[in-house]
Design a protein around this nucleic acid. Structure first.
Lengths: 169, 169
DNA sequence: TGCCAAAACGGAACAACGTTCCGTATATAG
DNA sequence: CTATATACGGAACGTTGTTCCGTTTTGGCA
């Protein structure tokens, strides 16, 4: 993961092995192909992002947790910009990743939305998928380094969720 | 071009040289980098597609020429599906290509639109860029081999252009 | 504790790739 | 016709992903 974010997804296997302090043979026993390595890293980061949801919910109010998680999600998308190209490279090894992406992130976000809606802090008619995709579009449209703009837009989006909040159904 | 459409854009340089009946040295004198080769092929196909416009206009009625060229454009997009991934690979050698794409194809389409609109066969408020992008989206959304669907949709689109046609302004 | 099979390791070795280089063949000018 | 310049072909180089095998470490049994 460190090598990927430093030297890009195209970093040589040897460099990764060196950084990990192991030989290439060891690396290949754990990840038979180069692609398996990047898939594993990607799944790992998806998991980390999904797991952040309950963690945030435990120590913040529902709508605060939602807002903080959305920013966390922006970070995730920004870090994975390099991988987006690899995903559409046609390599079938990447095919299951989008499904895993939804499978993990959608419930994570849904739990945050439900909690916030249940507490009457936001409106209740929000589809997690819409939101995930919207934030994706937002941070894709922003230029490379300027993720502060993406943050502002997402923050605006979350405020929008609060606007129509009514009392608990 | 033959090798690219047969073995994909990632075809080895040696294979291209063999197919061309020359040595790799000769190939590299004409195209110093592998990337230059695919850029040249791409520009070539853009030119061929753009040049098809006046050729079709010379032997068909304005709206027929427009419809035929749109189908020709679908073929072009379909053939270049493999290149689309390469274009977004971050290699700066590909940067000028999108501009060239617009520079050549926009006037080509505009001349067809103007001719058809001038003849009162289609409406006159169509933006070439909108159309190019729309067809791009149409043939991107269609599955791999099924370009007959893309053809039908594009044909529908062209019929739509005819719908609002009024007498010459 | 001492030994041995089994697993894990490291890095040299392989194949394929893009790219460079140089000896040879071809063309061109005088 | 010769001399120079240009174009050519393919062997050779460096770097990549991947495989292979000798060595080390591990873990259970006497």
């Amino acid at each position: 993961m460190a090598v990927f974010s430093c030297s890009g997804v195209e970093a040589p296997v040897r460099e990764i092995a060196d950084k990990a302090g192991v030989g290439v043979g060891t690396l290949y026993r754990h990840f038979p192909q180069r692609v398996d390595l990047v898939v594993a890293v990607f799944r790992n980061e998806i998991d980390a992002c999904a797991d952040a949801a309950p963690a945030l919910a435990a120590v913040h109010s529902p709508s605060e947790a939602l807002g903080l998680w959305m920013q966390r999600y922006v970070d995730f998308l920004n870090a994975k910009r390099g991988l987006a190209a690899a995903l559409h490279s046609g390599n079938p090894a990447f095919d299951p990743l989008p499904a895993y992406f939804c499978e993990r992130l959608r419930p994570a976000l849904r739990s945050l939305l439900d909690a916030a809606a249940g507490a009457g802090e936001i409106r209740g008619d929000i589809d997690p998928d819409d939101l995930l995709e919207a934030v994706g579009g937002l941070s894709r449209s922003a230029p490379n380094g300027d993720l502060t703009q993406a943050r502002r837009m997402v923050s605006l989006l979350v405020d929008g969720l609060r606007y129509g909040a009514g009392p608990k159904a």
